[in-house]
Write a protein that binds this DNA or RNA. Sequence first.
DNA 1: GCCAACGTTGGC
DNA 2: GCCAACGTTGGC
Length: 230
Amino acid sequence: MLNPCPSSPSRLLTGTAQSSKITALVDRRFLPSSGYLLALQTADSNPKPTAESHNLTQHRHWLMKSEPESRFENGVDMKFGIEDLKALPGQSSCWDGVRNYQARNFMRQMKEGQLAFFYHSNCKEPGIAGLMTIVKEAYVDHTQFDKKDAHFDASSKPDNPKWSMVDVQYQRMMKRFLPLSELKKHHLQHRAHGGPLKDMALFTKTRLSVQPLTAEEFDFLLSLEDKEPL
DNA sequence: GCCAACGTTGGC
DNA sequence: GCCAACGTTGGC
């Protein structure tokens, strides 16, 4: 099996959690066909047709979770924070290890050039640390076939791979870190009185490691950078 | 370390 | 197709 993502640690949140990898940019020959990008929304082999599965909802902004602190899973350190991404060659990496269908399907909807927040999860101070750009659209996550990888999936076969990943590139740190505690205050306020974060997936689908953001959510989050912490 | 929320598995 | 048991996520 070709391995388009030669370097890297695979540590992004798996499914609802994470994993990523690092990679130098990759060969365009491995770009998936368009049929491959048709996303199923759930584990069902025959999901109900929904706006999302038909890709009618075109999200342009994303939030992706990864763990910035060491934690061992099957003997492999899952640590992959924004500083780790920044330190890689080309400041880019593949986002491998996602093992949740909903998260995978969102990755399959991502387009080159779109922006994603890098979210630090399962750590002392969870929150939004910075911004990245999607630099390669969904392709086969080779770590699913690697027995030594923390996210090896014995049920996935090379002739019909289950899991995909994208490549991301560091763009910048947030002007200030946006802690989850602060985002939650906004979420609760907006839920009570209306506002852009009232339905934010970070709070309504807490275990989802790759999430779409509406334009309103994205703009509001960016605007927080220039405000005093709530 | 606890545990609530929620996704997955597999028996029936 | 239901649903109990089990596993995982991730904040606290």
